[in-house]
Write a protein that binds this DNA or RNA. Structure first.
Length: 521
RNA sequence: GGCCCCGUCGUCUAGCGGUCUAGGACACCGGCCUUUCACGCCGGUAACACGGGUUCGAGUCCCGUCGGGGUCACCA
């Protein structure tokens, strides 16, 4: 029998980082074993704009390269893949459950239920529904309906005994049937609830392995109960530990951004992202720009492979040393047996380390292609880019080395893309390197004159020129280098000065020095 | 609170009874390199939650305690 896994998000409008990891593990497990990965939409809640709320999720999955074999957009033999379109299947299942005595019609009102709950709590015992408004016969039902009551369908859960779940990740888990309430599976209006829908769909879609987050572990009893009473064969279950908050073991949540910002690394990540977003002119809100959401990383310029590699190691490992995996290697090595049981907290510093490495490994040409859209978005390069853009950016990227960790970091080197006359100077640095030190300006003038003679204008020539300049004038190299840097880039830090000069070229370098001298005069 | 799950450096983890005076990675600290920054190189600090067993021998098995988390909806 073929291995089939699924990822079943509900259309919430964003793709959670923990969700991607769940999807990744499902995808790896199925695709690494010649199986299928199915995407199903849990929209039993039937909200209005499913398509709109779904788009970011589909987009995010595609961005990280988790393509689905069956599901929205691609279809498949077990469709439809939207739960909102499968109501007839659920209703048939409810009928079956009712007929075989595994479910019953219940006419309790929410208030009555609440009263029972409170009474139980007051008495200090766990709440167990009395089944007082259960209709055992049609006559019962008619009588209760005549009182104006609305009927729902509940599962008739066993109140004794237990079952053993052979969880692929957690091993044997014993669960008392009675630990589950008589869960509602169908509302008075005929609509069905998630747990019923999942069971029916997992069966209809021939899901062989249900790999999902740990929070579903305690729901498994009622689902197993339905599988059995519906006469379906049971899939295998594997419950993943969830992705936890930075520096804690609590489940990572999109809504706790404020709290996470107190974590130094997380705050740094956010600040890094925001500074890029600002220069990109993006309108950011906590809803769209949040490191808990996958979209954040795309906007800032992370490589999807780096994110995936990091996420893979969050709860899974191959051995005691291997950290870098290509997609093929992941597929070959991934196994549920090596998934950890304890939650793993999200560490953005480590993610950045993976990102930095991925970026360095990326061929220069691809790095250029990655970075140009950011320059365009920031208005530093016209659309479409002139044909000399690629070689120019390529030289900058080469000289920048790993200073460009995420694509958006290219914006740190905006000075290369601004006209000489529009260069913005960092005032404190101007003071420190040009205005304050005695003779700094005169030295710079002298250096400029020497620069005007250099031919060809290349890093090695510039370097030897500088060294002899330093010697002739009896100064230290730092005395001239910093002044030149701020003059031609406007900044205190940047990459190698000779590379910078060469990239800018003789004319522009001289023009910038002239302007800096003018400004500081 | 009931039920369930989990517990090795700050973080991610290796460890499936002896080779563990516990290994790797990220972070951190110190040094080197150096025209700044980044990188790189060298070195360092740092963990088996606790208590009982079992065993010749326990990070590894069992029990308890403590701690952390999840879940208890006509949400998914």
């Amino acid at each position: 029998m073929s291995i089939r896994t699924r990822f079943a998000p509900s259309p919430t409008g964003y793709l959670h980082i923990g969700g991607v990891r769940t999807a990744l593990f499902n995808w790896l497990f199925a695709k690494g074993r010649g199986g299928q990965f199915i995407l199903r939409i849990d929209d039993t809640d039937a909200q209005r704009n499913v398509e709109e709320a779904l788009a970011p999720i589909l987009h995010g999955l595609k961005w990280v390269g988790l393509e689905w074999d069956e599901g929205p957009e691609v279809g498949g033999p077990c469709g439809p893949y939207y739960q909102s379109q499968r109501l007839d299947r659920y209703q048939a299942a409810v009928r079956h459950l009712l007929e075989c005595g595994a479910a019953y019609r219940d006419f309790a009102t929410p208030d009555e239920l609440q009263a029972e709950r409170e009474a139980a709590q007051a008495a200090g015992r766990p709440f167990v529904y009395s089944r007082r408004w259960r209709a055992e016969t049609e006559a019962d039902a008619d009588r209760l309906k005549a009182q104006g009551r609305q009927g729902v369908v509940r599962l008739l859960m066993p109140r004794e005994g237990q079952f053993v779940l052979h969880d692929l990740i957690r091993g044997e888990v014993r669960i008392d049937w009675a630990s589950e309430q008589d869960h509602v599976i169908q509302r008075a209006d005929g609509s069905c609830l998630y747990h019923l829908a999942t069971v029916v769909d997992d069966h209809d879609m021939r899901i062989s392995h249900v790999i999902r987050a740990e929070e579903h572990l305690s729901n498994t009893a009622r689902q197993v109960f339905m599988f059995e009473r519906l006469g379906y064969s049971l899939p295998q279950f594997g419950h993943l530990p969830y992705v936890a908050e930075p520096g804690s073991k609590t489940k990572l949540s999109k809504r706790k951004l404020e709290k996470y910002l107190k974590n130094r690394d997380f705050a740094q990540l956010m600040e890094h992202g925001q500074s890029i977003a600002r220069r990109l002119g993006l309108v950011v809100t906590a809803d769209t720009f949040n490191p808990v959401i996958v979209d954040f990383y795309e906007q800032v310029g992370y490589l999807p492979d780096a994110l995936v590699n990091y996420l893979l190691l969050l709860g899974w490992s191959l051995d005691d040393k291997t950290e870098d995996f290509t997609r093929e290697e992941m597929l070959r090595h991934f196994s549920l047996e090596r998934v950890n049981k304890a939650p793993a907290s999200f560490d953005c510093e480590k993610l950045l380390a993976f990102q930095t490495r991925s970026m360095q490994r990326l061929p220069l040409k691809q790095r250029v292609a990655l970075v140009v859209p950011f320059l365009r978005q920031a208005g530093l390069v016209t659309t479409p880019p002139p044909c000399e853009t690629a070689p120019y950016v390529s030289r900058i990227l080469e000289a920048a080395g790993d200073r460009v960790k995420v694509a958006g970091d290219i914006l740190d080197f905006d000075d290369f893309f601004r006209p000489d006359s529009a260069l913005v100077f960092d005032e404190p640095t101007l003071d420190k390197r040009l205005r304050k030190p005695a003779g700094a300006r005169a030295l710079l003038e002298k250096y400029r004159d020497a620069l005007a003679q250099v031919e060809p204008f290349e890093p090695s020539r510039l370097e030897s020129l500088t060294h002899s300049f330093v010697e002739e004038n009896g100064i230290k190299i730092g005395d001239i280098v910093h002044a030149v840097r701020v003059a031609i880039t406007g900044k205190a830090v940047g990459f190698g000065l000779f590379d910078t000069l060469a990239i800018l070229g003789q004319q522009r370098s001289l023009a910038r020095i002239a302007r800096a001298l003018e400004i500081t005069a």
